[in-house]
Amino acid sequence: MLVVEGKDDTKAINRAVNADTIETRGSAIDEDTLALIEKLADQRGVIIFTDPDFSGEKIRKIVAEAVPNAKHAFLPKKEGRPDKAGGSLGVEHATPDAIRAALNHVYTETDAAPELITHADLMAAGLIGGAGAKRRREQLGELLQIGYVNGKQLEKRLRMFGIQPATFAQAIRQMNATSKEEFHE
């Protein structure tokens, strides 16, 4: 069962995969909807698949707090924007391929995960505390398919999804290689 924000998200999901959805109808999730999500999580399991924006993250946090065993799928911002110039952002604008790719990389939160990637690792990788850190976090979120988070939340998200140091290091190498290619163009 996929938890999405609205009916347009459900339509986009149905174009991509055969799945049931439950719509939160925005970030002001009522108690009945939250209770239904909890019930479905017990019966079938749920995947939270919200828009890659502030409201989507707010919904994700509310649902994850109520359903700690929920799984998470993330759509990269660039895949949720119909035009590259800006405008509306969301699952409803994603292509079926982008939706399938996001659903092929589902994460489960774990509070028991040890800290594998430290604050110092994030600083050394240029992900916090420096010029260009925000853009690098966006790139990392896309490569690892964990969504975008600010510097304060990055360490937590890496830990809660159990991202391994080797996976993190590979993503950083890929980012650095891409940055060098862009520099030489």
Rank of each mutant, 00 (worst) to 15 (best):
Met1Pro: 04
Leu2Cys: 01
Leu2Ile: 04
Val3Arg: 01
Glu5Gly: 08
Glu5His: 10
Lys7Met: 01
Thr10Tyr: 01
Ala12Pro: 06
Ala12Met: 00
Ile13Pro: 00
Asn14Trp: 03
Arg15His: 00
Ala16Trp: 00
Ala16Pro: 07
Asn18Arg: 06
Ala19Tyr: 04
Asp20His: 08
Thr21Val: 08
Thr24Glu: 05
Ser27Pro: 04
Ser27Gln: 10
Ser27Tyr: 01
Asp30Gln: 05
Thr33Asn: 14
Leu36Gln: 14
Leu36Tyr: 03
Leu36Arg: 14
Leu36Ser: 12
Glu38Thr: 05
Lys39Glu: 11
Leu40Val: 04
Asp42Cys: 04
Arg44Asp: 09
Val46Gly: 01
Ile47Gly: 04
Ile48Thr: 01
Asp51Thr: 10
Pro52Val: 13
Asp53Trp: 08
Asp53Lys: 05
Phe54Val: 11
Ser55Arg: 12
Gly56Cys: 09
Glu57Met: 15
Ala64Lys: 05
Glu65Ala: 07
Ala66Cys: 08
Ala66Asp: 06
Val67Ala: 02
Val67Gly: 02
Ala70Cys: 10
Lys71Leu: 12
Ala73Arg: 08
Ala73Lys: 08
Ala73Phe: 10
Lys77Cys: 00
Lys77Gln: 02
Lys78Cys: 13
Arg81Leu: 10
Asp83Lys: 15
Ala85Arg: 15
Gly86Leu: 13
Gly86Asn: 13
Gly87Leu: 13
Ser88Ala: 15
Leu89Asn: 02
Gly90Gln: 03
Val91Trp: 08
Glu92Gln: 09
His93Trp: 08
His93Met: 11
Pro96Asp: 04
Ile99Tyr: 02
Asn104Met: 02
Asn104His: 10
His105Asp: 14
His105Tyr: 09
Tyr107Met: 08
Tyr107Lys: 15
Thr108Glu: 15
Thr108Ala: 15
Glu109Gln: 14
Ala112Met: 00
Pro114Ile: 01
Glu115Gly: 01
Thr118Cys: 04
Thr118Phe: 07
Thr118Trp: 07
Thr118Val: 05
His119Asp: 00
Asp121Ala: 01
Asp121Ile: 00
Met123Tyr: 12
Met123Ser: 06
Ala124Pro: 02
Ala125Asp: 09
Leu127Cys: 06
Leu127Asn: 06
Leu127Gly: 03
Leu127Phe: 12
Ile128Leu: 09
Gly129Met: 12
Gly130Ile: 13
Gly130Thr: 14
Ala131Asn: 12
Ala133Cys: 13
Lys134Asn: 10
Lys134His: 06
Leu140Met: 12
Leu140His: 05
Gly141Leu: 03
Glu142His: 05
Leu144Lys: 09
Leu144Val: 13
Gly147His: 02
Tyr148Asn: 06
Tyr148Pro: 02
Asn150His: 07
Gly151Tyr: 07
Leu154Glu: 01
Glu155Thr: 00
Lys156Ser: 07
Arg157Leu: 13
Arg157Cys: 13
Leu158Asp: 03
Arg159Gln: 03
Arg159Asp: 05
Arg159Val: 05
Phe161Asp: 13
Phe161Arg: 09
Gly162Val: 10
Gln164Thr: 14
Pro165Lys: 10
Ala166Arg: 14
Thr167Glu: 14
Thr167Trp: 05
Phe168Ser: 04
Phe168Met: 02
Ala169Asp: 15
Gln170Ile: 10
Ile172Cys: 11
Arg173Thr: 14
Met175Leu: 15
Asn176Arg: 15
Ala177Pro: 09
Ala177Ile: 11
Thr178Gly: 00
Ser179Met: 11
His184Asn: 09
